[in-house]
């Protein structure tokens, strides 16, 4: 109940809920929210949750998420939920799932990969394993752990 009230405090924007406790800060980092970001933003940490024990919640006013941003969040906070708020109401609620492919959002850490040269291409990765996440660069075919690419 208490939490619902908090959600409703946003008029328009985005609420990312059910983030595993401790990862909320990383979600903000991934969205590039920090110095210079002017929208009202809230990070709630260690909120008691029936489903996952303790969770973090991120609320951002007047921001909608792009597909790339949702995919990126999925990598570090799988199973989080994503709420779109319009006029104080949740108009869309979905679970954030790890995609099968990631296009254009991460850089390949292999310095000898063609995506790191002067070619007009975006790196893309195939998610080969989801728990824990392991991704293969579609170009150099190297397999990476999540920590290598974030």
């Amino acid at each position: 109940m208490k939490e619902e009230l908090k959600v409703k405090k946003i008029k328009d924007g985005t609420v990312i809920d059910h983030i595993k406790a401790g990862l909320g800060k990383k979600v903000l980092d991934i969205l590039g929210i920090g110095d210079g970001f002017s929208n009202t933003t809230a990070l709630l940490m260690n909120v008691p949750s029936e489903k996952i024990g303790r969770k973090d919640i991120v609320k951002i006013e007047n921001k909608t998420l792009k597909k790339e941003e949702v995919d990126k969040i999925a990598l570090i906070a799988p199973n989080a939920t994503w709420n779109v708020i319009k006029d104080f109401k949740v108009v869309r609620k979905s679970r954030i799932e790890i995609p099968d492919m990631l296009e254009g959002i991460l850089k390949c850490p292999n310095p000898k990969c063609i995506t790191n040269s002067n070619e007009p291409i975006k790196p893309n990765f195939i998610i080969e394993e989801k728990e824990p996440v392991r991704l293969r660069c579609n170009y150099c075919e190297r397999l990476f752990d999540l920590k290598d690419v974030l």
């Binding site: 000898k112 063609i114 040269s117 070619e119 291409i121 579609n138 170009y139 150099c140 075919e141």
Partner: peptide, 29 residues
């Protein structure tokens, strides 16, 4: 010249391309 432009040129001269290149993923590109 980058690889992309070289390929766009050479593909107009031949029917199949064989490529060897030091960068990984170059052939995929």
């Amino acid at each position: 010249e980058n690889l992309t432009d070289t390929i766009r040129t050479v593909e107009r001269y031949c029917d199949i391309i064989v490529i060897r290149h030091p960068l990984e993923g170059s052939a995929r590109l």
